[in-house]
Simulated assay, not measured.
Amino acid sequence: MNPPNSRSDALVNKWEGRRFLNDRLDWNLLRTYLVIGQEGSISRAAARLHITQSAVSQALRRLEEQLECALILRRGPRFDLTAAGEEVLRIATDIYGDVSRISAAVEQRSDAVAGKVRLLTISRVQSALYDEFLADFHEAHPRVELEIEVLRSADIISSLLQKTATAGLGLCRIPQPKLEQRQLLRQRYAFYCGRRHRLFGRTDVALEDMQGDSFVSFVSDQLGGNLSPLAMFRDQQGFTGRIVASSSNFEEIHRLVCAGFGIGCLPEHLVQRDIEQGLLWRLPPAEGIVDVDLLLLWNREQRLTVAESVFLESFQHRLATLDGGTA
């Protein structure tokens, strides 16, 4: 009888273990872990999956046992992903994308996806990713009718809570318990004035020079509103100028600032061409005022049609490709 070869036995056992893992790994555990990683919270993952926190924790423990490694480092109510956890999350994201593509391919061939998607959005959403997603979605599902309505962020949130729309693109400063959210892009707001304003073209302007000037303001630019950080900044800096005009529509705010009504706070990426054409002038502070996230929002408790589900799943998958970046 040949003496046992411990190194060979170890290699065989390792290969057998990998084959077992490949054949038996439960996708549902990976899906739960993917949601945990996306939400950054056991409780939020449970709410999104409509299961208990205990069930989420058990699924995480079972996955760690199958993989024979820790995926998260628990720090009280918070946690961080381990190096292995980061890699497993990336792989789970890729797998979810592949599953979504299989579903989309089958639906496209059968041409079974039809119906209406009602999307609510704030004015002037400028995103190449969003535009490309709409083009690709229409090409894949030509029988889905898209109805888009422009509203204030507050009205979008109200409509979604009342389940009268599929999804929304808007601002949501205070997270709503019933609404899911994913970042579409991050907008940095800064101060600008028009050609007729006394500060236009000046390179020696300081914040103190602006304190008494009038302002053109978004309706939500008030304490408690979705753009309340802008109002807080003015208050903290001792600005005493009054608001001479306001609107919920970007185009109207832009028009009034260009017309010289007063200083306005606008998203940088939307006015770059106006700066180049000499219609607007950038004012201090040089680093801007605040970053505000534009979000994809939807009600997790709403029963969706097939068309609405495919739209939301496709949109989420496209946003997942950003990997935390902006569009």
Score class of each variant (00 low, 15 high):
residue 33 Y to R: 07
residue 36 I to H: 05
residue 46 A to C: 07
residue 68 E to K: 13
residue 31 R to W: 00
residue 42 I to E: 11
residue 48 R to A: 12
residue 53 Q to D: 05
residue 35 V to P: 01
residue 61 R to I: 09
residue 50 H to Q: 09
residue 35 V to I: 03
residue 69 C to E: 15
residue 43 S to R: 13
residue 67 L to A: 10
residue 46 A to K: 00
residue 37 G to T: 12
residue 39 E to T: 13
residue 63 L to N: 10
residue 55 A to K: 00
residue 62 R to S: 13
residue 44 R to F: 00
residue 63 L to F: 08
residue 42 I to D: 11
residue 77 P to Y: 01
residue 77 P to H: 04
residue 78 R to P: 02
residue 48 R to P: 08
residue 69 C to P: 12
residue 39 E to D: 06
residue 38 Q to Y: 10
residue 48 R to V: 07
residue 72 I to N: 12
residue 34 L to P: 02
residue 68 E to N: 15
residue 74 R to K: 15
residue 67 L to M: 14
residue 31 R to T: 05
residue 56 V to S: 02
residue 68 E to P: 06
residue 58 Q to W: 07
residue 57 S to C: 09
residue 51 I to F: 07
residue 46 A to S: 03
residue 68 E to Q: 15
residue 80 D to P: 00
residue 54 S to T: 11
residue 60 L to G: 11
residue 38 Q to K: 11
residue 50 H to W: 06
residue 58 Q to D: 08
residue 79 F to S: 10
residue 36 I to D: 03
residue 75 R to G: 06
residue 54 S to I: 12
residue 40 G to S: 08
residue 72 I to V: 14
residue 73 L to M: 12
residue 74 R to H: 00
residue 54 S to K: 11
residue 34 L to A: 12
residue 75 R to N: 12
residue 70 A to Q: 15
residue 35 V to D: 07
residue 68 E to G: 13
residue 54 S to F: 00
residue 52 T to L: 04
residue 55 A to T: 13
residue 79 F to D: 12
residue 41 S to F: 09
residue 77 P to C: 08
residue 72 I to D: 04
residue 33 Y to W: 05
residue 51 I to S: 02
residue 39 E to K: 15
residue 59 A to K: 15
residue 35 V to R: 01
residue 52 T to W: 08
residue 44 R to H: 04
residue 74 R to Q: 05
residue 73 L to S: 15
residue 40 G to Y: 03
residue 37 G to S: 06
residue 42 I to P: 13
residue 48 R to L: 10
residue 55 A to W: 00
residue 79 F to N: 04
residue 48 R to Y: 09
residue 80 D to E: 13
residue 62 R to A: 14
residue 73 L to F: 03
residue 68 E to H: 14
residue 61 R to F: 13
